[in-house]
Amino acid sequence: MRVAAIDCGTNTLRLFVGTLDADGFLRELDRRLTFVGLGEGVDATGRFAPDALRRAFRACEQYAEIIADLDCSRTRFVATSATRDAVNREEFFAGVRARMGIEPEVISGVEESELSFAGAVNGIRCPRNPVLVMDSGGGSTELVRGTAACCQDSVTAVERGVSIDVGSRRLRERILHGDPPTAGEVGEARELVRHQLDGAGLDLGGIGSFIGVAGTVTSMTALALRLRRYDRARVHGAAMGAAAVHRVAERLLTSTVADITCWGPVQPQRAEVLCAGALIVDEVVRRVGTAELIASEADILDGVALGLLSDGDGRGPAVR
């Protein structure tokens, strides 16, 4: 059976098509990412802009063709932070229904974190417990602590997941206006992120494995590896120590968008907000302490697909 998962985030619209292999792990058949910037301006206006909707609808049309060509039995479309905040989200949903023939869903930050956890621990085969998964998105950041089935005596289970209302695009548009940001802007942004983490109510100590998913972490990892061109195979499973995370974050926060784009592995649309995402990741890493940050290309899309394959509605637990 083939299933399709679509993740509508603040910056990107992404598609995953897959099935299960003989060992119960996901086998990828197709994976696409399109920068649509759906959340552009939402933090200030509370609405999706017409141009952002047009970009998203074009991507939906392309994805609908791929899903049909690959003969998927089940599909789930999940929308996260920007859609939770937009007052005209029904306009967006109507456009999705018309182009894809499926009902999109706004999921909570908690469900988003749990799906990211399921996908990440399926993609990183043998993490040490307890596991912390961080999904650093454009509108929000999800943190979830739990265990992974890394040996016969353990099972995959979520202990607690939280969502903090700060992400790369939201922080960039709200505070980090400079190119590069000023020292004052960086200080104000760090204060906001620390305040959000203080109120999250999640223990970030004693972590055995720290996994980061989504574009901020994978882009930072590509820069730490000094890649001139993004290489998904090299990024997946690569680890950054705390010192490396701090260095990359500092470099991003003191460079212009044009400079970041010229480095090679970061797409221009990601470069616009990457400094803000890096600041958030850096603040989380400071609290986690000694555990390396492992980059995973498996994320919420994989978690949605696992749910579709295990129970048919995309909400089931990871199979491994």
Rank of each mutant, 00 (worst) to 15 (best):
L279N: 04
E272A: 15
R287D: 02
D299L: 02
I294V: 15
G303P: 11
A224C: 12
L293C: 00
A239S: 15
V285S: 00
E297Y: 08
Y230I: 08
V266F: 12
I294N: 00
L279M: 09
L301V: 05
A298H: 12
A238E: 15
A291S: 12
V273L: 02
S296H: 00
R232I: 08
L223V: 07
E272G: 05
T216C: 04
G314P: 14
I260D: 03
L279H: 05
A244T: 09
L225M: 15
L253F: 04
D299W: 01
R229F: 09
C275R: 10
G277T: 01
E283K: 00
Y230H: 08
L225Q: 14
Y230P: 07
I294A: 01
V217Q: 04
Y230V: 08
Q269A: 15
V281G: 11
D282P: 05
V304A: 08
V245N: 01
Q267E: 14
A318S: 15
L301A: 06
I280K: 04
R234T: 13
L252T: 08
V285K: 00
P317T: 11
V285H: 00
T256E: 06
V273S: 00
A224Q: 06
A242I: 06
G277M: 02
M220L: 05
P265D: 11
H246M: 07
L252H: 03
I294L: 03
A249F: 06
L279W: 03
L308I: 12
W263R: 13
R251Y: 05
T218A: 03
G241V: 07
R315H: 14
R251K: 09
L293G: 00
V257C: 05
D282E: 15
V281L: 07
T261D: 13
T256K: 07
L227T: 07
A243P: 04
E297D: 11
T256L: 07
G264E: 10
V284R: 01
A291P: 02
D311E: 15
D299S: 14
M240Q: 13
D282M: 13
H246F: 08
L253M: 14
R234I: 13
V266K: 07
L293P: 00
L293N: 00
H236K: 10
G264A: 10
A243G: 06
G303A: 10
